[in-house]
């Protein structure tokens, strides 16, 4: 399977925070959910991919090309939604259309109009007067209207109510009906990702601690709930992290079937992304 995006050993140092050897691959035709706490490095990683920050070590390849050197060509085929970075709010959707016609070679005015209608966005209203949710919808419409091949979306569903979120998720799934197209999507609303993401990449404190197919994650990982006595019998190599609660232990295991064969424990829960995040970050080893 060919990769549309490859991030290799991305390292970037700041005074109080750094990205350490961030690596992951996004194959064509797939949706990757990018999760992590606020401040874990999601936005910094996305900014490096988009060349917004440049002085980093490591290599980023998009469509097989170097993301920095072939930037102009690559960007014709990327659509982005960034957290709080967009056209100045004095402009209207019509103004955006007016300018974008000469910015992207493939800008499709009628597609943009279609999204404006779909999202009930008034074309002559200035962005300032849109609600937060409306702004997000406008950003999504703008990101989609030049027929991009790769969508890079930083928190695209924040501020949207559940109905619109479902609508937007449908649009994203429609987008990858074309097998050449992929999406990198960061979100803290993990239920969105549990449904549609094909891959989950989890970043914590500037490091990737997990990048795998969601199928593997949900079918193989599990949470074992057990008492103190049972917990003390476990081999440390058989679990990833554990958390001690008042009445029981929550233990994150990588292969719940193998675990069951070895220990014959019955209370193994299905994992959710929220559980995973909490146990990975707060759990002990």
């Amino acid at each position: 399977m060919e990769n549309i995006l490859e991030v290799n050993n991305l390292t970037k140092e700041y005074d109080r925070f750094s990205l350490k050897n961030v690596s992951f691959n996004l194959p064509k035709g797939m949706i990757m959910g990018f999760i992590g706490e606020n401040g874990a490095g999601k936005t910094t990683t996305i900014k490096a991919i988009l060349d917004i920050i440049q002085n980093y070590r490591g290599e980023i390849k998009i469509f097989g090309l170097n993301s920095h050197e072939d930037s102009a060509m690559i960007k014709e085929d990327i659509g982005v939604v960034l957290d709080d970075m967009f056209f100045p709010e004095i402009l209207t959707p019509n103004d955006i259309n007016f300018a974008m016609k000469n910015i992207y070679k493939n800008w499709d005015s009628s597609l943009f109009q279609h999204y404006l209608e779909l999202f009930s966005l008034e074309p002559k209203k200035i962005i300032k007067n849109f609600s937060k949710g409306m702004r997000k919808k406008l950003e999504i419409a703008t990101a989609l209207s030049h027929h991009p091949k790769l969508l890079i979306l930083d928190e695209p569903t924040s501020g949207l109510d559940p109905v619109v979120r479902a609508e937007v998720m449908d649009i994203f799934q429609e987008f990858i009906q074309n097998e050449e197209c992929s999406i990198l999507l960061s979100s803290h609303i993990t239920t969105d990702l549990e449904h549609i993401a094909d891959y989950i990449t989890f970043i914590n404190d500037g490091e990737i601690i997990l990048s795998t197919t969601s199928d593997e994650l949900f079918n193989q990982y599990g949470i074992v709930k057990c008492g103190k006595e049972a917990f003390q019998k476990l081999d440390t190599s058989d679990y990833v992290k554990y958390k001690k609660n008042k009445y029981e232990y929550d233990v994150l295991v990588r292969d719940k079937k193998a675990f069951q064969r070895k220990y014959h424990m019955n209370v193994i829960d299905k994992i959710t992304l929220d559980d995973l995040m909490v146990l990975m970050i707060k759990g002990e080893k």
């Binding site: 797939m30 998720m169 449908d170 799934q173 549609i196 993401a197 094909d198 197919t213 969601s214 199928d215």
Partner: peptide, 17 residues
């Protein structure tokens, strides 16, 4: 594979499997 994933709102890899 892809349209089934879309219509069921699930991942492509799941329907593929």
């Amino acid at each position: 594979i892809r349209s089934l994933a879309r219509d069921l709102n699930i991942s492509v890899i799941t329907t593929k499997n």
